[in-house]
Design a binder for these strands. Structure first.
Lengths: 242, 242
DNA sequence: CCCTCACCTTGACCTGGATCAAGTCTGGGG
DNA sequence: CCCCAGACTTGATCCAGGTCAAGGTGAGGG
């Protein structure tokens, strides 16, 4: 809360981190957190600011520790494909060899933990478990991308939106899984981003959401807050069963 | 060439393997090849036979050592998205946690090297370098998938086909890169597979290829063999510049 | 409290690629 | 050598989603 932080705070930074349990940092024991902290640095990125440029040399990995981030690729004429949204605990930077295969920018104010490649190398040398954790992370992401390719290549607009809603629900975690009726959802990204994520236009996103509302599948409280009214049917649409 | 092979052949299998230099097996020293061979087994898959079932428990990794393989996901109604083609030296099985996120079947007769997860675990424990190599492999694949998502979400049919041709050219390696005019290409997969790979229908694939031919960009010798006549223009179309 | 700007929704129309329906080509078997 | 089946091409038509063009809407600033 104070603006001038004592130096020991640096070494304690990781223990209070929101990413502590879910991120790759869980591969490191509490007693070694000071090492983790010394190899990384915290950075705050303002809304809309890009912090990874597609094609630029890949020097760092990132862990999102606060706020949200969007990952995307661009075509020369400006067409954009958002390949993912990242939030608390998510790891960034695996999709790169010498240079990043994607760009990234903050969606709202975002807080990141930056790990230079050299630091990560020191860490994986010291904690072999971490390397395995990174591979797991990559595998998880590869699995997700398989599904996303099927969405982009083969699903209709309705199916894409339904799948997107299911993804957001799954992201809430086991929180309110007990009541599959009436799930409150917020969509923190503008329609433009949803469209670029689903390979659609903003108008189509808007129309399909309106149609879902008309059919009583969801109710739209305001732009960012919607309520899932018929979980099962949306789930069925997402799988292409309706 | 003999049908009954002496037992020592097993331990020698890896040293003559086509995947030796390009696959993950390059992370292991020559002197340890016997260990590698003892942890893996060779298998031959006939044309069209499926050997990974999407959603089934993931027990093995595979290295393609001969022939080709297609990787895909299915929707319940049969719509299919081919997420990749694998050939000599390619690694399969990273896109899985408890179960495979994809199915796989042979495209022509394929030869595979199978590594049970338990074996891979023993190998990575013994050769820490291998774990790093697996992560690299995952990163490479993640980078490729970023580009493929842009293709599926944002490119036109012409751009998709042009990108596909560029991919096949790049796959020839530095072989005939000296003469970027008149590149011989073979497309070992049927049109159906190209369509499912690019998120199009077979008719559109056929029409676009015919259009390319009409425009003098390629010439079609027969179904599987085409010649690239104007590399630069195809490259430009692939990037969305034309 | 109202204005304004950025974002979203809705409507009218268009089009790229899908669908439906014939042909055509090719290679293997009789 | 011819026939046949499977794979590909081509043409005609259709339609989901894109494009173009008005309106809404609501949060922040004056």
């Amino acid at each position: 809360m104070t603006s001038s932080r004592p130096p020991e705070e640096v070494h304690d930074r990781c223990s209070h981190c929101i990413g502590r349990e879910h991120s790759i940092c869980s591969a490191i024991e509490d007693c070694d957190l000071a090492i983790l902290a010394s190899e990384s640095s915290k950075m705050t990125v303002p809304d809309g600011r890009s912090f990874i440029e597609e094609g630029s040399p890949a020097h760092d990995f990132f862990v999102v520790t606060g706020g949200r981030v969007k990952i995307f690729t661009l075509l020369p004429d400006g067409r954009r494909q958002i390949t993912g949204f990242a939030e608390g605990g998510d790891f960034l930077g695996l999709a790169a060899s010498k240079s990043y295969a994607f760009g990234a920018e903050a969606l709202g104010t975002a807080v990141l933990c930056r790990f230079p490649h050299a630091s990560m190398q020191r860490l994986t040398a010291r904690f072999p478990n971490l390397e395995h954790r990174l591979r797991q992370e990559a595998s998880r992401e590869l699995s997700l991308l398989q599904a996303r390719m099927t969405l982009l290549g083969r699903k209709t607009a309705r199916e894409r939106l339904a799948t997107f809603l299911m993804e957001r629900i799954r992201l809430l975690g086991a929180a309110c899984q007990e009541t599959p009726h009436q799930i409150e959802l917020d969509l923190p990204m503008p329609r433009t981003d949803i469209a670029d994520y689903l390979g659609l236009t903003i108008e189509t996103v808007s129309r399909v959401l309106s149609a879902f509302k008309r059919e009583g599948l969801i109710s739209i409280r305001n732009i960012t807050h919607i309520t899932i009214m018929q979980f099962e049917r949306i789930s069925a649409i997402a799988e292409g069963l309706e």
